[in-house]
Structure formats: structure tokens, C-alpha cells
């Protein structure tokens, strides 16, 4: 099981509590979260299905290798954090 946590700045706009899912890849894990909260998809991924430019996805504290394809295996990872990059003014 992997636990997905969303930044509170995202929770402000769309209700997305922590969720535990069984998944082989990052993409599968996120898909399960999106099935739970369909509105969440557009906040995390862009029109082409890639992680938004200013969103960061960490797997056990490490950045995603490929933000476009999301096929990265989770292995024994326990935590996914969906965070916002520091940007803007």
C-alpha cells in the first residue's frame, strides 16, 4: 500500500484527503486517487496527461524521473506527496 498526501494548498480548492492505494506505478496510484475524486485530475495533470509544470510529485521524498509518462514503478515505496513548486508572486 502507498499513501498519497496532497498539499493543503490543493485541498483548499478540491477536497482530496489522504488516500491509501494498492498500485504498481505512480500513474496507477494517481489514477486511483482520481477515480476517488474525479475533479482532482485537472489540478495535478495538464491536458496532455503530464504532471503540471508547477506541481511536484515525490515518491518517498524523491522527485519523479519522468513527469510525462508516470510509468515509474513504486517498488516498496510507502508515501507519495503531491506538492506545489515554489513559484510566482
Amino acid at each position: 500500500m502507498v499513501r498519497i498526501t496532497f498539499t493543503e494548498n490543493l485541498v483548499r480548492h478540491v477536497a482530496c484527503p489522504e488516500i491509501e492505494v494498492e498500485a504498481g506505478t505512480v500513474g496507477e496510484a494517481l489514477e486511483q486517487a482520481f477515480r476517488h475524486v474525479p475533479a482532482l485530475r485537472g489540478y495535478v495533470l495538464d491536458d496532455q496527461g503530464e504532471v503540471r509544470k508547477h506541481v511536484i510529485v515525490l515518491i518517498d521524498g524523491q522527485g519523479l524521473a519522468d513527469r510525462a509518462r508516470l510509468g515509474q514503478p513504486l517498488g516498496g515505496a510507502r508515501r507519495i506527496h503531491v506538492l506545489q513548486a515554489l513559484s510566482g508572486g
Binding site: 490543493l10 478540491v14 475533479a39 489540478y43 495538464d46 491536458d47 496532455q48 506545489q84 510566482g88
Partner: peptide
């Protein structure tokens, strides 16, 4: 939203907004 993309909301009564669909590129 700087981080989370563009969103569209509608208020039928001009007061209470709810999120609706957003245009999506192919």
C-alpha cells in the same frame, strides 16, 4: 491557479460559485 491550472466556475444565482468543466486541448 498558478500551480493547478485553469478552472471555470459558475454561479446560477450570482452568489454561489461551483466548478464546471474547463476547455481541454486534444
Amino acid at each position: 491557479h498558478g500551480h493547478f491550472g485553469t478552472k471555470v466556475h459558475r454561479a446560477d444565482d450570482g452568489e454561489r460559485f461551483a466548478e464546471i468543466a474547463v476547455p481541454t486541448y486534444p
